[in-house]
Design a protein around this nucleic acid. Structure first.
Length: 948
RNA sequence: GGGCAAGUGGCGGAACGGCAGACGCGGCGGACUUAAAAUCCGCUACCCCUUCCAGGGUGUGUGGGUUCGACUCCCACCUUGCCUACCA
């Protein structure tokens, strides 16, 4: 402590200082832990508790749990945790049974990379990080039910992650019932013949391997050889969601290549419709709903097959514009399309234009060269090339089923294998990309929708009557786009060459990683290579201890590599003899691990019943905390707060798992999170020198609006807070300087929770002063004695008090903590001006502050003579009698401009008020004898006069 | 290129279509003090007029519109941020 502080402490030994705050905070945190103050009772089981509390309305308030990195927390991290804590405390004080806790997400790449860098086992480094984070968070006084906390790396936890995987593996999506069902039911349908087995043979005629293959086509978790995102630099494959727009890994920024590898997938596409439809009823930010809708990318259209001239094969395309079929003048296949090789002729056909061949002697050469070029091109290059269309002619022709014309088939990389069928019918008249390609390759362009008069643009994608769209079989001419679509779909359906269909952008979720630090798959393969699930009795399948847990990584640019799983090196673990019900046999374990999203896909459920060893969650606890109520079509967490960056990853996966578990009858809510709220980011100023290098923000000085570091002028920009930008401020340093309550208040007072705003350490002192004044309003700084008096408060004080209670209550309920604090401050400033503070006022003020600054509230509550915790005290309720002011200021406007103010009784009638307003000298003067056309009266607050 | 937000004092931000700038930071002045810190009190959007008292005008990115009345609703534009990107 500095000397000035010591001097101040001599003068006022009981002043609310950082030292006193630290003492108060540590003391109450210990007491809360000792008493389990924040423990929320379950209706039954090991966490059962007071039936009176269980009978209250429940609130399940949750944060997106943290991923403990080695770097520790900066002040931006706990923003959401503090907000949910305030909200939880408010609800605890308004008669709710509140479940609020926090676990830790701890599997995954960053932990593993950190472990590799530091040469420690990931479990050791992860546990150390978690301990460090727990200590940092404990200092903030978050009211968590610590009995319910867990880490996703606990075998007792990931046992159930594996169990859920098996539920998904052992189920299929019944398109008719529109829900998941156990795979055993599908087998029964195949056995009985109720359902046709794909192919020509009956179920009983199939071998075990063939049966496994058939079921693999149905399972919601399945292995397949599809092209996946292979990242040699990381040594693992990645989900689409983990690859950035420019084709690099989100983590590490390494190049990502398409490679055919046998990998596990989750059939999330089966739920595409439900994932879109069920968004409707969720209380989520519209922007997030929109992102999910766009990600799922539902579009209605048609599939149409085109006959390839001189071949048996057909090219099937997806189009959203079947009405433009008459304008399809060529076709395009994606470079990876499997039909490319089979339709390519030996020689260039008659009439091949030079521009189409890419200068190659034969079509096969041209395609080989183009594919090579397309594959080597990084997506960055693709991006800089923009919309310049490239491609080559395959030498093959297809036949337009409506015009009967031969149309050339091209290969071009502007058609993506992963969307639709990987093939398109090109309609340059109505599609901008096709127009560009057609122009570049001298292909015919036919407009089939009439553009508006004076249209000088190129492709016309808008509405208009169909033209050039008739033959002796079908006539669309004159039809509007929608009608033409319907008619065309009906025609292709009747001809047996197509059908109306819905296409999704969403693809199945790649679910395996070549990593050590993840949940092992509870899957073994028999000698024929058939996958078997482990029985529940063999769960958890624990990660083996290994010598070498680092992944095998490669040259980041070397696409001709393939992954090697760390677990595969451990032969003793991989090769096992197990009895899966038909006697001991040799098996090989699956050596991939699950992606880091797995643990967070269902963690909300485990909070409800964290120690249950029989089930992932008891039905009783699940229904109590998550079950549908209040007329909602779904239940779920009452409030889920986290960053918007999880809009399409975690939030989509978690919804998917919920729906599967719901379908299979394991839980009662088909949505995990009823209300979602995205907190904003705390930004910080970044100072850079002339070379553009960030300099330590704490050492930058400001002079006359310019910024200097070590005498050199530096530039200032608003950015993220972090170590690399040398502008991180830690909660520890703010707590040391002012105390945790001040930090909590400041973070909540900075602005609306959902908006990003810059951190300003200088401004923290404002909230510190608020708490000091609050303290002084009840406690003598010299003696530490309580100074409140027993006298009743006067009218004005009661009005100020109840106005604050009313406003703060509404703000708390609506997550508007910044304005709640403003109202508390106003009341506190009012009380400061009183010569003596009535006990009732001090007590209510303490209660108002309690959710925001719980430590000082507990201390004052105790000093005021209360013996029970303020945590469970009742939040004050405003008395409406004091919400009406004695006199109201009425503004008198002329044409909307304020000209006079009147002090009137709140009960004044419109007539009286109008009379008073018109009689006011200032109004008379302003009117200057002009006549009155109209008077709008909103008693008691406003009169607006419109002069003639 | 597309989509979604948001633009209010020196700064962070308040404002059911009804007194713009609550509350806080910073700044200025005063009280207390030998002095400083802390604390307490007052002032603090801009311009004009005025010795004072008082008064007048302009103001919520720009331009239009709806309305008795617009920071708020509608249209166009500008700027910034975020998301997304050849999705057929």
């Amino acid at each position: 402590m500095s000397e000035t502080n010591t001097a101040a402490e001599v003068a006022a030994p009981h002043r609310y200082t950082a030292a006193l705050a630290a003492d108060i905070e540590a003391r109450w945190q210990d007491l809360w832990d000792a008493h389990g103050t924040y423990d929320a009772p379950n209706p039954g089981g090991d966490l059962a508790g007071d039936p009176e509390v269980v009978a209250r309305p429940k609130k399940f308030i949750m944060d997106m749990f943290p991923y403990p990195s080695g770097a520790g927390l900066h002040v931006g991290h706990p923003l959401g945790y503090i907000a949910t804590d305030v909200y939880a405390r408010y609800h605890r004080m308004t008669g709710h049974n509140v479940l609020h806790t926090l676990g830790f997400d701890a599997f995954g790449l960053p932990a593993e990379q950190y472990a590799v860098q530091t040469g420690t086992h990931p479990r050791v480094s992860t546990e150390a990080n978690i301990e460090n984070m727990k200590a940092q968070l404990r200092r903030l006084g978050l009211g968590h039910d610590k009995r319910r906390s867990f880490e996703t790396i606990d075998p007792a936890y990931y046992k159930w992650t594996q169990w859920i995987f098996l539920q998904i593996f052992n189920s299929w999506y019944d398109e008719d019932a529109k829900k998941a069902r156990p795979i055993a039911e599908l087998v029964r349908l195949f056995e009985s013949g109720e359902r046709q087995v794909p192919g020509t043979r009956a179920w009983s005629e199939l071998s075990a391997v063939e049966r496994a293959e058939v079921l693999g086509e149905y399972r919601l978790a399945y292995a397949s050889d599809a092209p996946v995102n292979w990242c040699p630099g990381l040594g693992t494959v990645l989900a689409n969601e983990e690859v950035t727009a420019d084709g690099r890994s989100e983590r590490g920024n390494f190049p990502v290549f398409k490679s055919k590898l046998r990998q596990w997938n989750m059939r999330i596409t089966a739920y595409a419709d439900r994932l879109i439809d069920d968004l409707e009823a969720l209380d989520w930010p519209e922007a997030i709903k929109l992102q999910q809708r766009n990600w799922i990318g539902r579009s209605e259209g048609a599939r149409v097959s085109f006959e390839v001239v001189g071949h048996d094969e057909k090219i099937t395309v997806f189009t959203t514009r079947p009405d433009t079929l008459f304008g399809a003048t060529y076709m395009v296949l994606a470079p990876e399309h499997e039909l490319v090789d089979s339709v390519v002729p030996a020689e260039w056909p008659e009439g091949t234009k030079d521009a189409w061949t890419g200068g190659a002697r034969t079509p096969a050469d041209a395609i080989a060269a183009y594919r090579k070029q397309a594959q080597s091109k990084t997506d960055v290059e693709r991006q800089t090339e923009g919309k310049d269309k490239t491609g080559v002619f395959t030498g093959a022709y297809a036949r337009n089923p409506l015009t009967g014309e031969r149309v050339p088939v091209f290969v071009a990389d502007y058609v993506l294998m992963g969307y639709g069928t990987g093939a398109i019918m090109a309609v340059p008249g109505q599609d901008e990309r096709d127009w560009e390609f057609a122009t570049a390759f001298e292909l015919p362009i036919v407009r089939t929708v009439a553009p508006p008069e004076g249209w000088e643009g190129e492709a016309y994608t808008g509405q208009g009557p169909a033209i050039n769209s008739a033959n002796d079989k079908l006539d669309l001419n004159g039809m509007a786009v929608d009608e033409a679509k319907r008619t065309a779909i009906a025609w292709v359906t009747e001809q047996g060459i197509g059908e109306g269909t819905v296409n999704f952008r969403l693809r199945d979720w790649l679910f395996s990683r070549q990593r050590y630090w993840g949940e092992p798959f509870p899957i073994v393969y028999d000698e024929q290579g058939v996958a078997h699930s482990l029985p529940e009795s063999m769960l958890p399948l624990e990660l083996p201890e290994v010598e070498d847990y680092s992944p095998r990584t490669f040259e980041p640019d070397d696409a001709d590599t393939s992954p090697e799983t760390p677990l595969s090196r451990n032969e003793d673990w991989v090769n096992v003899t197990l009895d899966l019900g038909d006697g001991p046999k040799r098996y090989r374990r699956e050596t991939n691990t699950m992606p880091n999203w797995a643990g967070s896909c269902w963690y909300e459920l485990r909070y409800l019943d964290p120690h249950n060893s029989e089930r992932l969650v008891s039905a009783e606890a699940e229904q109590y905390w998550m079950g549908p109520r209040d007329g909602q079509p779904h239940g779920g967490v009452d409030l889920y707060v986290g960053g918007a960056e999880h809009a399409v990853l975690h939030l989509l996966y978690a919804r998917f798992w919920s729906k599967v578990l719901f379908d299979l009858g394991h839980i009662s809510s088909n949505e995990p999170f009823h209300k979602l709220y995205n907190q904003g980011m705390i930004q910080a100023y970044v100072y850079r020198d002339s070379r553009g290098i960030a300099v330590p923000a704490a050492e930058v000085e400001e002079r006359d609006g310019a910024f200097y570091y070590q005498g050199e002028k530096v530039g200032r920009l608003l950015g993220k807070m972090g170590k690399s930008l040398k502008n991180a401020v830690t909660p520890d340093e703010i707590c040391a300087e002012y105390g945790a309550d001040t930090l909590r208040l400041y973070e909540m007072a900075m602005g609306p929770l959902d908006v990003s705003r810059p951190w300003d350490t200088r401004a923290v002192i404002g909230q510190y002063r608020l708490l000091q004044r609050l303290w002084r309003n009840a406690v003598d700084e010299a003696t530490g004695e309580v100074t409140v008096v027993s006298a009743e408060p006067d009218e004005a004080t009661l009005r100020a008090l109840h106005k604050a209670i009313d406003g703060v209550s509404q703000d708390m309920a609506n997550l508007r903590f910044n304005t709640a604090i403003a109202k508390v401050t106003e009341l506190n400033n009012f009380v400061t001006k009183l010569s003596e503070v009535p006990r009732t006022v001090a007590e209510q003020l303490v209660l108002l502050v309690a959710p925001l600054a719980p430590h000082i509230a507990e201390e004052l509550w105790r000093k005021l003579g209360r013996t029970t915790s303020v945590v469970h005290a009742d939040f004050p309720v405003a008395d409406p009698a004091y919400l009406v002011d004695e006199a109201v200021t009425c503004v008198v406007q002329i044409k909307g401009k304020v000209k006079a103010r009147l002090e009137v009784a709140p009960s004044i009638s419109d007539e009286e008020l109008e009379k008073a307003a018109l009689a006011d000298p200032a109004v008379v003067a302003a009117l200057g004898g002009a006549g009155i056309r109209k008077v709008i009266v909103r008693a008691p607050k406003l009169v607006n006069i419109v002069p003639a």
